[in-house]
Structures are given as C-alpha cells and as structure tokens.
Design a binder for these strands. Structure first.
Lengths: 196, 196
DNA sequence: AGTGCCATGTAAGGAGTTACATGATTCG
DNA sequence: CGAATCATGTAACTCCTTACATGGCACT
C-alpha cells in the first residue's frame, strides 16, 4: 500500500523514472528502508494500468519517465487526507510473539523479553547516535529517524511493563484444546471492525 | 511470517485443526486481530510440506487435525529465541506518509498531522476503555491491548513532536529531480543492513 | 578487457486479502 | 424448513522479497 502512494507522492514533485524514484525514496528515508527496484517497476505498471500515472516517451538514455495524472493526484490527496487506521496496520510480530509465549508450554518468557530488550536497546542507541551525527540532515530522514526512536522507546517500556506483569501475575496453566470449542464469548470491539 | 510461527506455537499446546487454530489465535489476541481462515489452511499446507507439522487422520466430524513435529519444535524455539530485528519490521505507513508529506508540494502537513492525531487519540481512548472493562481478561489479550496502548501513545507523542519540529524549521523548498542524479552520499548504517 | 554502476525488466515464491464453493450440523 | 455456524478448501489478486537476465556506459 505505501509503495504505491509513495511513488505517487514522489511523482507529484515532477516526472521521474523508476531508478530515480527508488533513489528519491531511499534518500527520503535516509537509506534505511531500501526499496526493491523490481517492485518499483511492477508498481509503476499497476499504477499505469489504473491510470494514476502515464508513461512518457523513452528518452535517448533508455530512461522511461512517468508522470502523475489528475486521477493519481486525487488518489494521493485522499491518502494524505485519511489517517492510518487500526485495521490498516499489520499485526506486530513482537506483540504476537509475546502473547503466544505466555501460553506456549516450555517457553521462558522472561528470557524472550530480555533478549528482545537487549536487541531493541541496541537499535535505540544506534538511532540516537545517528541522530546526533546527522542533526542537520534532510527533514524527511530526520522524521523517520525520530519515529523509529519513539517506537523503540515505547517498545522498551512495554517490554519492561510486560516483564513486571508476568512476574507479578505468573503464567496461566497451559491447557490443551477443548474437544468442543464453544462460540466466541467476547464480541469484537466496534472500533476495530471498521474499514473492513 | 508471524502466522506460520503462530500456528506452530498453538500446535505446541497440542494437536488441533484449522478452524480451532483460528479460534485460538483470535482468542489470544482478544478478537482484535482477525485471522483469515483461508490463510490458515494454506499455511498449514506449507508447514506440512516443510515437515514442520504432520496431518493426523481425519476424524468422524470431518476435522483434520495437525501435530507439530520435532523439526517444527526446533523452528518454534528458534523464533522465540531470536529477537525481532529492525529489518524484520515492515515499513510504517504513517512514518512514510509524513516523511513524504514534507517534500510533496501542495500538502498541508499540519493538517495531516492533526487528522492522524485525532484518529490515534480516539483509538487510544477505545483501548483504554477496553482495558478498564476487561482488566481480568486472558493474559495474552491483555498484553496485546497494552502493546497497542503503548504504541498509540508513542505515536501521539511523535506526532506532537513532529508538529513542533515542522512549525519551528518550516518546510524545505520543493525541488524537482536532478537531471543527473549523483551517487548516494550517505552510507547505509551498518545496523540496518544486518540480516539481509 | 573487466569491474561497477545505471537502468530496465522477469520469475518464483511467501504472505495476506476478499470472495466463492461445498457439505455437515445445529437451532429456532 | 431455513438460517447460522462449523469445517474444509480454492481462486484471484496485491504486496513484497530474492534472484536472475540484459544492455549501456564510464572508469581504470
């Protein structure tokens, strides 16, 4: 989803060809989020098919630039205007891992938490070092970096909190599956069912 | 990735069939992260192909339970033992959106931030309400809920921070693409290049 | 002449989604 | 009887990744 809209956003700055779009994307994210070049071309093909971009004639150097269309501009405006919702977000692997760890027999939960904490702290230190080293970097890259810092900090806090909760309440006794699983007893919260 | 390992974790509690696995997964996440039933079956097929699980004989009720294998147990242990790395995480859509917003002509960045802030705050309130309402819920679901709360809080803080940064420094002048894009001038940080 | 970068793509597969199809059972 | 739920699956598609193929051009 985001690559499609990212390419539209980059094309809003002016026509560009695939290789250039990848460079622009990676530059905006400080070269930390590499963008697969193959995906750029396949995404551009889908965008062209959906008439959100149009191909310009190939130039002498063998470059095939694209231009955003009016329809693409509307699509892009819609993206910026609509907030990212809960249902848009992918399931977080760490959250799932710990949620399952507490009900999986034979798993040392405190150990899992500590290993993750160490890894995340190390990441956080690296981010902080980068931020100090490149304080006058591009605004976009700075925002990405700070986003990662805020998220990593929150993750460490959650890990610490979770460790305390688990230590306090202990783990539930592992039980096998009911031979006859009953109906779900907890209704799905409305807010999470939206946009589906 | 996480569905594969989630199924292995659920099967570690004992043999189960597809429908049961979906119910168990959704129950562990408080029915907030619906798991597609079709994907359960296709994932089980891949797991069986890779000999991480084995199919048990179909019973009278037409249920086809699976059992985790020794190889599957090792795979699962490896998952729990290795922390989630930076490279494993998907690109965050909101981060990309704002990073691109600041270099896309005609975008009202403050507006984008405010819309997102409102949406995230509303989510946060809903999560908080849920937590209060189900304080004695399953541990796994509680962890998931708290994870989402910590993340939403961090997001609001980052949004506020970003709003301040943008207000203070202003937006960079939009410029078109260089006719001849030079080589990348910022080396990719080592820590982010790992595990690729 | 060879290495490396620029620039375009394709192939194959995993992961995820929506949608559809099919039968059995259960419950009002 | 009909509707809902249980239970299994397939099809089509998007998204994303790794890997490979091809050709031009620049630099040593």
């Amino acid at each position: 989803m985001s690559v499609k809209h990212s390419l539209l956003a980059l094309l809003e700055r002016g026509p560009a060809y695939g290789y250039q779009l990848r460079a622009a994307f990676e530059s905006a994210t400080g070269n930390t989020w590499p963008l697969n070049i193959g995906q750029v071309y396949t995404t551009l093909n889908r965008l062209e098919r959906d008439q959100l971009v149009e191909a310009l004639p190939e130039n002498d150097s063998g470059q095939r630039p694209y231009r955003i269309t009016e329809s693409g501009r509307r699509q892009l405006a819609g993206w910026f205007a609509s907030p990212v919702q809960a249902a848009d977000r992918p399931r977080d692997e760490l959250t799932i891992k710990l949620a399952l760890a507490v009900t999986t027999p034979g798993v040392n939960v405190a150990d899992v938490i500590q290993r993750q904490r160490t890894a995340t702290l190390r990441l956080l230190q690296e981010y902080t070092r980068l931020k100090a080293a490149e304080d006058n970097a591009e605004l976009a890259w700075r925002l990405v970096l700070e986003s990662m810092i805020f998220r990593a900090e929150a993750e460490v806090r959650w890990l610490d909190h979770t460790e305390a909760v688990v230590a306090r309440t202990g783990l539930p006794a592992p039980r096998a599956y009911d031979p006859e699983p009953g109906p779900a007893d907890r209704p799905e919260p409305e807010i999470l069912r939206e946009n589906r």
